[in-house]
């Protein structure tokens, strides 16, 4: 009876294990334009082979970090979004050797973009103002 039970346990139990992977991971940090970290936000990874269905999904950590391991070359996309509709899409170019990973262009500081936006709004207003003035 005991022999039978021990055999049954062996059949039903799935073995698990782990080993350290030698593959290179891509780690990204996501943040709002205010500098605040996108903590615990939904993240999806799209490989160059399939742009519609995510190959990996999960959440960023407290520091807004998310990592994935690319297994083929090409442009990988990581989309992180929150419940309010804010979305950040990272595009990562993975080289054939999976070694050199270029993070793409860095943006201007926030205050520069804010000033640029206000400047554009007032420039548009001035164009309308002049046009209206000439019309009268």
């Amino acid at each position: 009876m005991l022999v039978f039970m021990s055999w049954a346990c062996e059949v039903h139990a799935h073995g698990v294990g782990y080993r350290q992977s030698g593959m290179k991971a891509v780690a990204l940090e996501f943040f709002y334009s205010t500098g605040e970290k996108m903590s615990y936000r939904e993240a999806k990874v799209f490989s160059p082979k399939d742009e519609k269905f995510a190959v990996q999904s999960g959440r960023t950590d407290e520091a807004g970090r998310f990592a994935f391991v690319p297994d083929c070359e090409g442009e990988w996309r990581v989309i992180v979004r929150d419940e309010e509709g804010h979305q950040c899409e990272a595009k990562i170019d993975v080289t054939p050797e999976l070694e050199a990973v270029s993070p793409g262009q860095q943006e201007e500081p926030l205050y520069v973009r804010a000033l640029l936006g206000v400047s554009i709004i007032f420039n548009i207003a001035m164009i309308f103002y002049r046009r209206e003035k000439h019309a009268h």
Binding site: G117, I121, A125
Partner: peptide
Amino acid sequence: TAKIVRTALISSAFFL
């Protein structure tokens, strides 16, 4: 014309 600057001001406030 009189409201254009006001509109720009409010639009900037909303933007920021």
